[in-house]
Amino acid sequence: MWKYLLRRSLYAIFTVWVISILAFAVIQLPPGDYVTDLVNQLRSQAGEVSPEWEARMRAMYGFDDPFIVQYWKWIRNIIFRGEFGYSFFYRRDAGVMIMERLPMSFALSFSSLMFVWAVALPIGFYSAVRRYSMVDYFASFIGFFGMSIPNFLLALMVLFFTYKYMGGAVIGLFSEEYANAPWSWGKFMDLMSNIWVPMIIIGISSTAGLIRTMRANLLDELNKPYVETARAKGLSEARLLIKYPLRHALNPFISTIGWMLPGLVSGETIVSMVLNLPTSGPVLFNALIRQDQYVAAGFILMLSTLTVIGTFISDVALAWVDPRIRLQ
């Protein structure tokens, strides 16, 4: 087990390193840089700029250096000083912005994941055991319905219906009084009372998929001989189901933690834009549009790292739950 853990952590560190290079390179792929953006603004607002001025700005921001030098400066500051660079657009420290937004994204994604599990598990279980029942059909219908509606559309519909029929659109994660207040118990409760709307909207599309996976896995198991045997031995139906086939069927839940996280985070971006949530998605989106490279690269690095950590945890958990994986 220890060997397995060690191997996994080495893989994880290597992956994060490769991601950091990719993240930094991808940001630089689009033609132009922040100075190009600045020059365009200048041209559209005031007039011309000389090439000398443009060159001086490039040198000032360090865009002249070769890729590897820029990358080294960036990653060195992150590793040794914990600094993520500077946001050109917001004119402030990129690291502070990332740290302000990331926990909110994480909280939202995590609560969505919990919601997905809390809903998909029992429904999938029930649908498998009572196959082709009314409840199965109904759950499948709702699940597919949720899956086929893009979540931004769902968010818009929720906005409209709450505006029209509940006297005010549900916008944001905090009420007005708490939006800028420092953290307190009241602010936390306020967050809890507002988070369920985006949580359901983001989670609902993943729910359908997981219901189907759960149902299919369990159905596979239900027809296996060991189930027959257990039943023949006179085990009660509930105890039987929970003790054997359900444990098998749970595997996909655990192994998908890793890749469900990025899915939730990207789903979060567009829903956050519609519902006006102070999460990382919209800031990342703007940074990409405006070539605000340190903010964008920092976010991508942090989100990727979280995903890698998520995968690592799920691998470990899976190995713990299922001895067969450990031995491979």
Binding site: L156, Y163, G167, G168, A169, S272, M273, V274, L275, N276
Partner: peptide, 18 residues
């Protein structure tokens, strides 16, 4: 001044008199 990430959210807030 409140920043809205999307025009829809801002529109609903304005419509509502917020």
């Amino acid at each position: 001044a409140t920043l809205y990430q999307s025009d829809e959210a801002r529109t609903f807030a304005m419509l509502n008199g917020d």
